[in-house]
């Protein structure tokens, strides 16, 4: 296999862990076994403790607007170690978790903040690689 094909294969495999369909926080809270099916056919399970923590951060009306997992988009264009959080409710939640000022629709976070976010929400956040 040529090196180009290997690189293309490698790039196509980077996002296989992402879910086919995201679950809202409300759906996840109501489910007896909160989980999503990934594109590679595996199953990703959310920890109930984290769902309850997220529920505590949001008013009840917003719970069905928060898709899970929250995606931490890593984009080399933004610079090494910079990640983007998109979506109004996602930004609201992440801002609260990190103690940052809420931005409208999009939030850029940096490596130490990504580490904090992943520490607090290990199952309800996932990396997304963009190019």
């Amino acid at each position: 296999m040529s090196s180009d094909r290997i690189i293309k294969l490698e790039l196509s495999r980077l996002n296989l862990h992402l879910p086919e369909r995201r679950l809202s926080l409300k759906e996840a809270l109501l489910s007896p076994r909160p989980q999503v099916a990934a594109r590679d056919g595996s199953v990703h399970v959310f920890k109930r403790g984290e769902l309850e923590f997220l529920a505590g951060l949001l008013p009840e009306a917003d719970r069905d607007k928060l898709p899970l997992p929250i995606l931490i988009a890593l984009e080399p264009k933004l610079g090494r170690g910079t990640a983007r959080i998109s979506g109004e409710v996602e930004v609201k939640v992440v801002s609260q978790v990190l103690g940052k000022e809420a931005a409208a629709g999009e939030l850029l976070i940096y490596r130490p903040e990504v580490a904090i976010l992943r520490r607090k929400l290990p199952t309800t956040t996932q990396y997304l690689f963009m190019w």
């Binding site: 180009d4 790039l11 080399p76 090494r80 490596r111 580490a115 992943r118 690689f129």
Partner: peptide, 26 residues
């Protein structure tokens, strides 16, 4: 074109490596 693709792959894999380091230390 091949350099462009290789560079893109390199940047993304480097990002992945950084993220793995964060996860590992956590």
């Amino acid at each position: 074109q091949r350099v462009g693709l290789a560079q893109k792959g390199y940047d993304l894999l480097k990002e992945k490596m950084d993220a793995l380091v964060i996860e590992f230390f956590e």
